[in-house]
Amino acid sequence: MMISCKKAVIICDKAQYKEASLWERMKLNYHLLLCKTCANHSKNNVKLTSLCNQARLSILSDEEKKKMKELFTKVE
C-alpha cells in the first residue's frame, strides 16, 4: 500500500489532469497522510493548477506561427 515519493508525485501530477485512477488516488492520499514533504508538494501542485486555470492562458497554434514566419520572409 505504501508507495514511494517518486511514484506519489507522478500520481499527484496525473491527478491535476484528472488522469489518476481511483486506486492510484487512494494510494496517493494514504501516502500524503504519512509524508509531510509530498503533502506540501501536493498542496502547491493543486495551487498551480488553479493558477493556470485562473490565468486562462492562451497560445497561438503552430499553424498560425508558421504563417507568421512565412510573412516574415516576405518582409525581409
Binding site: 492562458l57 492562451s58 497560445i59 497561438l60 506561427k65 507568421m68
Partner: peptide, 10 residues
Amino acid sequence: VDLYADYLFN
C-alpha cells in the same frame, strides 16, 4: 515567433 509570440499574444 518561437520565443515571444505566445507571450505577446497573451
